[in-house]
Simulated assay, not measured.
Amino acid sequence: MWILFACLAALSAAVVVTLSKAGIKDVDSSLAFAIQSVLILIVSWSVVIFQGNLPDVTRIERKVWIYLIIAGVVTCMSSLLSFRALKLGNASQVSPITNTSLLFAVILATVFLKEKISWQVVVGALLMAAGAIVIAVSRE
């Protein structure tokens, strides 16, 4: 089931990139991200409330709060940088470069989460990164 959700997330991310690029045409990229963030906040807390998970907030451990807060700050930075890149470049070139995060995620998961990776994962991540770079440096 995780593959289905991952594919749907990838499709959603592609739609977000396309709509965001269209939306920042005549708007500052930081302002556009701030507008989207408000909607993200509303939708995400609505899902938590709808699923009945709001009481779980009080049961989250301090260490988990720290991880989530740091991840939230980095998510914000990532999105602000992505929006700025979209403002300055073509979506078809910016998106592949931002998706080289796959390579970094594999490295970080191996180092910090002690996940075991196979040679296929290494080769696949390197090929995806190489493909992203080829797409990004292509001329129109």
Rank of each mutant, 00 (worst) to 15 (best):
residue 97 I to N: 02
residue 83 F to S: 00
residue 25 K to H: 13
residue 47 V to L: 12
residue 93 Q to C: 02
residue 93 Q to K: 15
residue 84 R to W: 03
residue 27 V to T: 09
residue 104 F to H: 07
residue 45 W to D: 01
residue 59 R to W: 03
residue 44 S to W: 05
residue 62 R to T: 13
residue 19 L to M: 11
residue 59 R to I: 05
residue 40 I to R: 03
residue 31 L to H: 06
residue 98 T to K: 01
residue 56 D to G: 08
residue 107 I to S: 04
residue 64 V to D: 11
residue 98 T to A: 01
residue 24 I to Y: 08
residue 56 D to W: 03
residue 58 T to M: 09
residue 107 I to L: 12
residue 63 K to D: 06
residue 21 K to L: 02
residue 95 S to G: 04
residue 23 G to Q: 03
residue 39 L to W: 13
residue 6 A to N: 03
residue 18 T to E: 09
residue 22 A to Q: 13
residue 77 M to L: 15
residue 50 F to V: 12
residue 20 S to P: 00
residue 53 N to V: 02
residue 83 F to A: 00
residue 49 I to V: 14
residue 14 A to R: 00
residue 9 A to D: 10
residue 69 I to S: 13
residue 51 Q to H: 07
residue 83 F to T: 00
residue 99 N to V: 00
residue 38 V to A: 14
residue 59 R to E: 15
residue 63 K to H: 04
residue 49 I to P: 03
residue 94 V to P: 00
residue 9 A to T: 13
residue 40 I to C: 08
residue 12 S to M: 13
residue 56 D to Q: 09
residue 14 A to S: 14
residue 91 A to M: 04
residue 13 A to Y: 07
residue 36 Q to C: 10
residue 75 T to W: 09
residue 92 S to R: 05
residue 97 I to V: 15
residue 84 R to I: 00
residue 83 F to G: 00
residue 30 S to L: 11
residue 58 T to Y: 04
residue 86 L to C: 00
residue 83 F to L: 01
residue 63 K to Q: 12
residue 73 V to T: 06
residue 72 G to C: 11
residue 94 V to N: 01
residue 74 V to Y: 03
residue 77 M to D: 04
residue 94 V to S: 01
residue 4 L to H: 02
residue 49 I to C: 11
residue 54 L to V: 06
residue 35 I to R: 07
residue 61 E to S: 10
residue 48 V to H: 04
residue 90 N to H: 09
residue 107 I to P: 05
residue 10 A to C: 11
residue 27 V to Q: 04
residue 25 K to Q: 12
residue 45 W to N: 07
residue 70 I to R: 12
residue 30 S to K: 10
residue 80 L to F: 13
residue 69 I to K: 01
residue 34 A to S: 15
residue 97 I to T: 06
residue 24 I to D: 01
residue 82 S to W: 00
residue 99 N to D: 04
residue 7 C to V: 13
residue 48 V to F: 10
residue 60 I to L: 09
residue 34 A to Q: 09
residue 103 L to T: 12
residue 79 S to N: 13
residue 13 A to D: 12
residue 10 A to D: 07
residue 18 T to Y: 08
residue 80 L to D: 04
residue 57 V to Q: 02
residue 35 I to F: 12
residue 101 S to P: 00
residue 54 L to Q: 06
residue 89 G to T: 06
residue 87 K to S: 09
residue 63 K to R: 10
residue 26 D to C: 07
residue 40 I to D: 08
residue 50 F to L: 15
residue 51 Q to K: 15
residue 60 I to P: 01
residue 10 A to L: 12
residue 53 N to M: 10
residue 92 S to N: 08
residue 20 S to V: 05
residue 89 G to R: 02
residue 43 V to P: 05
